[in-house]
């Protein structure tokens, strides 16, 4: 049974058109929901890392660009100025991604006006479940970064423990903390934005 070339072309074409149409339909239904959830997750994360803040406003594009310039391999997705009830800045929320074992680990870090880490949380990651995922499931690991003094250096962060069996994932988290410190020291502090 041999089909004519025209039949081959038409059948593949029809299949693809129907598939594309149904995907477009699914996407248009789900896209706003997914975007809203991502946004909500980000706001939740900001509130977790900076519990005293009431609202968050993104910094201007130039500052964000400077922040991207001072970090090495990490991606800086957003920097927020955290404001308290009377619109006084009390700290910074930094959304940063660094390479772990299975791609980027997306994190949100909170720094107070002195540059001390007030909290950090992992938004999403693809680390190996049961091994790399322990950076999230074992609270002591993220908790130790809260003990860093204001103005901590790369060396301070690197002296902290990593999880055995999850070296690359731990390193990813550490790099994000180092990046946040650098952004604070070199950009946020010098830009004179802390009043």
């Amino acid at each position: 049974m041999k089909s004519s070339p025209l039949r081959l072309i038409v059948s593949v074409l029809v299949t693809c058109v129907i598939a594309a149409a149904s995907l477009a339909a699914t996407y248009s239904v789900t896209a706003p929901l997914i975007a809203a959830q991502d946004k909500a997750a980000e706001v939740d994360a900001l509130k977790t890392v900076l519990p005293e803040a009431v609202s968050f406003e993104p910094v201007d594009a130039a500052t964000l660009k400077d922040a991207e310039a001072v970090v090495s391999d990490e991606k800086v997705d957003a920097v927020y100025r955290a404001l308290d009830g009377s619109s006084v800045p009390i700290g910074w929320g930094i959304k940063v991604a660094s390479r772990g074992y299975g791609g980027y680990i997306n994190m949100v870090l909170g720094l107070d006006s002195d540059g001390k880490v007030t909290g950090l949380t992992i938004l999403s990651m693809n680390e190996t479940p049961g091994l790399g995922s322990r950076v999230k499931s074992e609270p002591w690991f993220l908790g130790q970064f809260l003990k860093l003094k204001p103005g901590y250096t790369e060396k301070d962060v690197k002296s902290l423990d990593t999880i055995s069996g999850a070296t690359k994932s731990s390193r990813g988290v550490r790099n994000s903390v180092i990046a946040a410190g650098l952004i604070y020291e070199k950009v946020l502090k010098q830009a004179g934005e802390i009043r």
């Binding site: 041999k2 593949v12 598939a19």
Partner: peptide
Amino acid sequence: PNEVRIPIFIVIIAS
């Protein structure tokens, strides 16, 4: 058609 069944299957599955 028999000749292009695999691409069609893959498109359906991927969708």
